[in-house]
Simulated scan of single mutants.
Amino acid sequence: MRFFLLLLAAASLAGCGMRGPAAYNAAGTIDPEQFMLRSSGPEATGYRIGPADKLSVTVLQVEDLSFAEIVVDASGKLQLPLLGSVQAAGLTPAELSADLQTRLGERYLRNPQVSVSVSEAASQKVIVDGAVTKPGVYVMRGRTTLLQAVAMAEGGTQIADLKKVAVFRTVEGRRMIAVFDLAAIRRGQATDPEILGDDIVVVDTSRLNARYRDILAVLPALAYFTYL
């Protein structure tokens, strides 16, 4: 059972068409800082709002219609002044912003400016596997970093190689992978990257099968994401 989740993760990657190290494309390598700026947070990844999510809604210069925190109810709706019940679940923050702007502009305000962000996603999950004490699927509430994700699994085992922690991620429908030095992150010598919903974290890349080890072997540097 220890590597069941890892096998499941590998199976989920099988559809990407990867054929060993020859599939590596240097043009697909992204600087990690730019990657994290571009893909960090629910809004950037096309996250769709769900029931029990906590949102921040700001209507520019209209405090009575702005909320630092408002919760999507079990039916997927927001209860808002003037507008009443508004469907939120299934929309991205950008789509909900546009919908609220349209509703307010049609009846109440001239050229309203509305901003919606997800302050806490209720149902985001991460798989943590490999050489950790308790491999499994964990629920993330709010912003979660790599260190925090590994801590959910009660840390690496005594034989874990913490210098090689792999993160699998889907960006715009494409699979990516990067390797991070968790030991350096703990010492404050490297940035602790944000983990997003549906990421797969594997502590100690020696636990990956040969196909993925071959891909990792040709990465130009640690902490660089590359397309699979």
Rank of each mutant, 00 (worst) to 15 (best):
E69K: 14
V71K: 15
Y138H: 02
G136W: 10
V137T: 11
K134W: 06
K163R: 15
V201G: 08
V71H: 07
S97I: 08
E194Y: 05
L82Q: 15
L83Q: 07
L162D: 11
A89Y: 08
V150T: 02
V202T: 12
Q189M: 00
E194C: 13
P135I: 08
Q101N: 02
V132N: 03
V71M: 14
D129E: 06
A183V: 05
T92H: 10
G142V: 14
R141D: 10
D192N: 13
V137P: 00
L96Y: 04
D181K: 12
A122V: 08
S119H: 09
V126T: 06
G155A: 01
A151Q: 04
P81K: 00
L91E: 00
D192A: 00
A153M: 01
G173M: 03
A89D: 08
V202G: 03
L109M: 06
I70M: 13
A88F: 08
G90D: 11
T133D: 07
E106N: 14
P112D: 10
L146S: 12
R174E: 13
V86T: 10
T145D: 09
A160P: 05
R169S: 06
T170C: 00
N111H: 10
I177G: 09
E69M: 07
L182T: 11
R187K: 14
V114D: 05
R110E: 05
T92E: 04
I195E: 06
F180S: 12
V72K: 03
A151L: 04
S85N: 15
D204L: 09
P193E: 04
G84Q: 06
I177M: 13
P112F: 04
I127L: 14
V139P: 09
L91S: 10
V179E: 13
R141L: 01
A89C: 12
L104Y: 13
I177T: 12
D199S: 07
V171N: 06
T170E: 05
V71S: 13
Y108W: 11
L109N: 07
A89M: 05
V128H: 05
V201S: 12
S115N: 14
A94G: 01
P135C: 07
Q124T: 14
D199C: 03
V118Y: 11
T92D: 02
F168T: 01
T157A: 05
V72P: 04
A121Q: 12
A178G: 11
I177C: 15
G142H: 10
I195C: 01
D192V: 08
K163G: 15
L104P: 03
L78K: 04
E69C: 12
M140R: 00
R103Y: 06
R103T: 05
S117M: 06
I159M: 01
S97F: 10
T144M: 14
M140F: 02
R103N: 03
D192P: 03
A153K: 01
S115F: 08
V128W: 06
V132A: 08
D129T: 15
T191C: 00
V179F: 07
T170N: 10
K163V: 00
G90R: 12
K163M: 04
A74Y: 08
V118T: 00
A178N: 08
Q189E: 14
Q124L: 15
